Amino acid sequence: MATLVIPPLTAARGERFFLISAIVMSVLVVAGFSLQLAAGRSSFGAPLRVHIHAIIFFGWVVLYLTQNILAARGSLALHRRLGWLSLAWIPAMVAMGTYVTVLLVRLGHTPFFFQPGYFLIMDPLSVFTFAGLAAAAIVKRRQTQWHRRLMFCGMAILLGPGVGRLIPMPLLIPYAGEAVFALVILFPIAGVIRDLRVTGRVHPAWWWGLATIAAMQFTINLITFSAVGVGIYNAVAAGSPGANVPPLAFPPFPPH
Rank of each mutant, 00 (worst) to 15 (best):
A2P: 15
A39V: 12
Q67N: 10
L120Y: 04
P47T: 08
F119R: 09
I220S: 00
R149K: 10
M151N: 02
S75R: 15
A190S: 08
P116T: 00
G45V: 08
H147R: 03
G177P: 09
L150S: 05
A77V: 15
V105G: 10
V139H: 11
H203A: 08
A237Y: 13
L172F: 06
A22K: 05
H109T: 12
L37M: 11
V29D: 04
L19Y: 01
S86Y: 11
L63R: 05
S126F: 11
V192G: 04
L65A: 08
F57A: 15
A72Y: 06
G229V: 03
A92R: 01
R73S: 13
M155I: 10
F112S: 06
R41L: 14
A182Q: 10
V102M: 10
A190K: 10
P91R: 07
V100L: 15
I189V: 15
V198E: 00
L76D: 12
L248G: 02
I69E: 03
L82W: 04
P204Q: 05
A2L: 14
L222V: 04
S43P: 02
D123P: 08
L104E: 13
W208S: 01
F253G: 14
W84Y: 15
F44D: 05
V245Y: 01
R197V: 00
V127R: 04
H53N: 12
A136C: 04
I173S: 00
L19F: 03
G108K: 08
P174H: 05
P161A: 10
G14Y: 06
L125S: 05
Y118D: 03
G164Q: 13
N68R: 07
L107V: 09
P91L: 08
M96E: 09
S226T: 07
I56H: 03
L159V: 06
V236W: 02
L35N: 04
I52C: 09
L125D: 04
Q67F: 00
P188F: 02
R149V: 09
L87V: 11
P246R: 11
P111W: 00
V100G: 01
L19Q: 09
H256V: 14
L70N: 07
V184K: 02
A77L: 14
S86V: 12
L186H: 08
A205C: 00
L172I: 00
P124W: 13
I173F: 02
V202G: 01
R16C: 06
V61F: 11
V127M: 03
G40P: 03
Y175T: 13
M122A: 14
M151W: 11
